[in-house]
């Protein structure tokens, strides 16, 4: 029963958070002076057409830009609730459509990145801790330092540079030309797999380095605890003992950083999407910000936050599953 209660409280606070985030997102996208009507007029004029003031006013009225900000917000958020995210001026299509066709890729890349991160970091971290100060441990530590220090986009640039100069292949995008607009098939899926590893590695390297360090440090700490000696004293073999006790406990901080890890992945995704020209939400979001495509940028910012919230929610639930102390609300 208290578990259910905890989950409900957690959901409630997430909902409140969501409202706050929507307000912040809205404020940020409406911060820039001038509005879409202005930039629309400017682009028309620069392409040699003439625009009258009346036309600009008409556009303003059409999108409700002449109303006070708070009314605009309520209109926006009201539409959201009904699944209407507004209209993207940059793409001349509803925001739902623009985002809808790109979001699955973003989610796929983020999930893939998390899987990659944990599948590599946990075993390597365990190995590093058990063979402390070995050659492998030092190698992982050095690679970890480099991985943590390389900005994602620099890694992407280096990969692109290396692939084009040494292998003569282009690593951008998620599909080869022939599958770009093709319908889903085994071939297209396979093509996706041969491309998606690039953004996954680029996005996952720093996280892997970080989680490896956490895993190594916590496992080393756990190995010094009394319960390890006590478990050894039962005659359990060293390997089984380590897997059952200290490793299991060292997983807790890893699980609890899952939400945070997702946040960094989501944070890093737009810039990588741009560099690698991926057909995901990244380039779209950055362009929307630059061209003040306000509904699109606002909606995307909100969606990024929702993804992160879902992630930290899952992480909290997982932590409750793996750690009875959290589940039962014990202090120690």
């Amino acid at each position: 029963m208290p578990i259910l209660q905890k989950i409900l409280v957690r959901l409630g606070s997430s909902a409140l958070m969501l409202i706050a985030v929507s307000i912040v997102a809205f404020i940020i996208v409406s911060l820039p002076p001038g509005d879409f009507a202005d930039s629309y007029a400017a682009s028309k004029i620069s392409s040699g057409e003439t625009v009258t003031l009346a036309e600009i006013e008409a556009i303003r009225r059409q999108f409700g830009l002449d109303k006070p900000l708070y009314l605009q917000y309520f209109k926006w958020i009201g539409g959201m609730v009904q699944g209407d995210f507004g209209f993207s001026w940059g793409y001349s299509r509803p925001v739902t459509e623009v985002i809808g066709e790109r979001l699955p890729m973003t989610i796929l890349i983020a999930t893939g990145t998390l899987l990659f991160t944990y599948i590599t970091a946990i075993p390597l971290g365990i190995y590093s801790a058990l063979r402390q100060y070995s050659v492998a441990d030092y190698t992982f530590t050095i690679l970890g330092y480099i991985g943590l220090a390389t900005p994602n986009f620099l890694l992407a640039l280096l990969l692109m540079f290396g692939a084009t100069t040494w292998f003569g292949v282009s690593v951008g995008g998620l599909f080869s030309l022939e599958y770009q607009d093709a319908a889903w098939s085994m071939g297209r899926f396979w093509d996706l797999l041969t491309h998606i590893w690039v953004p996954i590695i680029v996005l996952g390297t720093a996280g892997t380095a970080f989680q490896l360090r956490i895993m190594r440090a916590t496992l080393l700490e756990e190995l010094n605890k009394m319960y390890v000696t006590a478990a050894r004293a039962t005659g359990l073999s060293e390997f089984k003992m380590i897997l059952k006790y200290p490793v299991r406990l060292a997983l807790n901080p890893i699980v609890s950083t899952l939400g945070w890890e997702l946040t960094t992945v989501i944070s890093g995704a737009p810039i990588i999407g741009l560099v690698l020209s991926l057909p995901d939400t990244g380039p779209m979001f950055i362009n929307a910000l630059k061209s003040q495509d306000m509904f699109l940028a606002g909606a995307m910012m909100l969606i990024y936050c929702i993804l992160v919230m879902i992630g930290s929610f899952i992480s909290d639930i997982l932590l409750m599953i793996v750690d009875p102390r959290v589940r039962m609300g014990a202090s120690t």
Partner: peptide, 8 residues
């Protein structure tokens, strides 16, 4: 206090 694993 610490000679049992807290999660088993």
């Amino acid at each position: 206090m610490s000679s049992f694993s807290p999660v088993h």
